[in-house]
Simulated assay, not measured.
Amino acid sequence: MALLEVVVEDVGGLAAAVEGGADRLELCAALALGGLTPPLSLIASAAALPIPVHLLARPRDGNFRYDDAEAALVAEDIKAAAQAGLAGLVIGASRDDGSLDADLLGQWVAHARAEGEKRGAPLALTLHRAFDLCPDQRAAMETAIALGFDRILTSAGEPRVADALPALAQLVRAADDRIVIMAGSGVDAASLPAILETGVREVHASCRVPLDDAGAAEQRFRFQSGPRQVTSAATVANMKAILADRC
């Protein structure tokens, strides 16, 4: 059966994802911005879970071009993930032309390997959706393989993966079991069957639903822009049921 990774941004999401049967978690903060590095307190809570957790290391929103100070922050996040006992990392970096910054990624991969050796257990490595900005995704995939990444999280170059299924299928075929292609962005119960037809073995989804209406005061002060989105155990379970039925 294909694996379901659920991306979560708060402690309630951790519990809901596990309750619903998620196979793995991506841990982040600020999902509305595409995800940022989560706080240490949330990392500690996630480390106690019975399923693997991968940490998103992204120091700010915006592009994926990082200066030395920002790159050092990601290196510290890699160390924190290893020391907390998390299973893996989600990282990515770009050059000015949108291609992967292989030099910086190589430094982070080497650092992750060293931290894994220190603790006696390797860190799994996922290349995040900086991949989707690459002008030549086939070349970017070869770079990721050469660097030693285990998987690529991608929507195959479109904002929503359901709009790029032919390209996704081509990536899966080109990967040829050398690296895992994990489909993400807009994955839900309606789009999942068609996504699975591309041959992907892993899917990535938030499985969130609106909790309630945003409060007038919160919106006035810009503390909230709309209904709060929360991870739904029922949605996770439904996605898992679809995976079981299709595989």
Rank of each mutant, 00 (worst) to 15 (best):
F149R: 02
L125E: 05
D61W: 07
N63T: 15
V203P: 13
E202R: 10
V236H: 00
L171E: 00
A237D: 02
G215T: 11
R151C: 10
V90D: 00
V8R: 02
D23A: 06
W108E: 11
T126D: 09
L42S: 05
A156W: 04
L243T: 14
D177Y: 07
G92T: 04
G62Y: 03
A233D: 11
V203Q: 02
L33H: 08
G62T: 12
D136I: 07
Q107P: 00
A146V: 13
L4T: 04
K79C: 15
V209F: 10
C134T: 13
D188L: 03
I78V: 10
L147V: 03
A169C: 05
A82R: 03
D163L: 10
N63V: 14
M239C: 11
P50H: 13
R60G: 05
A237K: 08
A75T: 09
I145P: 01
L14M: 11
R220V: 13
E9V: 02
Q170R: 14
A48G: 00
T154A: 03
V236K: 00
K118L: 13
P135E: 02
V172R: 05
A80E: 08
E197H: 09
V18T: 07
L31C: 02
L73R: 13
A110M: 08
Y66I: 05
R220K: 14
Y66H: 07
A241H: 12
P227R: 09
I91L: 15
E115C: 15
K79D: 12
L3T: 11
D101M: 03
I179Y: 00
S191D: 06
A17E: 08
L125D: 06
A237L: 11
A146L: 08
L36I: 08
T231F: 04
V74I: 14
A190F: 12
A169R: 03
S45P: 03
A189R: 15
S232Q: 04
A29E: 09
L42Y: 06
A234K: 14
D10I: 06
D96S: 14
L211Y: 12
T143R: 01
A183M: 12
L42D: 00
T143W: 01
S232L: 11
F131K: 00
A75V: 11
E142Q: 15
M239D: 01
A139E: 12
V161C: 09
A57V: 12
T198M: 10
M141T: 07
D150F: 00
G106K: 02
L211C: 08
A57E: 00
I43Q: 03
S191K: 03
R228T: 14
D212C: 15
R58G: 02
F223T: 12
P159G: 01
H204R: 04
I91M: 10
E9M: 01
A17M: 14
M141Y: 04
L211A: 09
V6G: 10
R113S: 11
D10P: 12
G116P: 04
D188P: 12
D245N: 15
A102I: 14
V180T: 11
T235V: 15
D163W: 07
P227G: 08
V6Y: 06
E142S: 15
A144R: 05
A175Y: 01
E158T: 05
G88R: 01
G199C: 08
M182W: 04
A130E: 09
S155C: 03
R246H: 12
V230T: 10
A241M: 10
R24M: 09
D177C: 13
E218K: 14
L31R: 09
L31I: 13
